[in-house]
């Protein structure tokens, strides 16, 4: 009897020692390797796979509201301003560090293109500019396009364009 419990004690102790830390469970975290193996990494999606929640067709341009422009400014400052500059002059910090200079938004060609052009450039890239389709959501692309229009309008605006009650702040 005594011997059997001794064997059981040793066995159970060994079994307990095999327990891993509770911190490591069979749960997959983002970027974590497949459980227990380093092979077959990365797991590539099937060629026919579609991202979840991906819209079936590109969204149509939303009505331009102040909220859309605010959103556009935020996304523009994050994703575009490093090269295009916060005013769209094409003199962002990365350009100052040697990246080829993009055209200013205020040239005639870009003033006259439809807004769809900006949407398409964000989606597919242009020249040496990479596609931003993986970083800027389709609805945000319209917001950025609207904000670029606002930048263009402000570049050639005069004091008379400002509502009278706001003129004082600029003088």
């Amino acid at each position: 009897m005594k011997r059997r419990s001794a064997i059981a004690l040793v066995g159970l102790t060994l079994a307990l020692a095999a327990c891993d830390n509770m911190a490591n469970q069979a749960r997959r975290n983002p970027y974590e390797l497949p459980y227990g193996s380093q092979e077959n990494w990365p797991v590539m999606p099937l060629a026919t796979a579609v991202a979840r929640d991906e819209p079936l067709k590109p969204p149509s341009p939303p009505p331009v509201t102040m909220a859309l422009l605010e959103r556009g400014r935020q996304r523009f400052d994050i994703n575009c301003s490093p090269c295009h500059g916060r005013l769209g002059e094409g003199d962002g910090m990365i350009v100052q560090r040697g990246f080829p200079r993009p055209p200013s938004y205020n040239i005639d060609r870009l003033r006259n293109v439809p807004s769809q052009h900006f949407y398409d450039v964000i989606t597919h890239g242009y020249g040496i500019m990479y596609s931003y389709a993986d970083r800027v959501e389709p609805t945000d692309r319209w917001a950025v396009a609207a904000y670029i229009r606002a930048l263009q309008a402000s570049a050639s605006a005069s004091l008379a364009d400002v509502p009278p009650d706001k003129q004082k702040a600029l003088q």
Binding site: I128, Y130, R135
Partner: peptide, 28 residues
Amino acid sequence: RYCHTKVETSSSAGMPSTAICMTCHSQV
């Protein structure tokens, strides 16, 4: 958020894809 693109919408902040690095480093 230029690199950690999903931090506002996802549990994980998201590590930048190689394409994000290469957006600049294909030239610089």
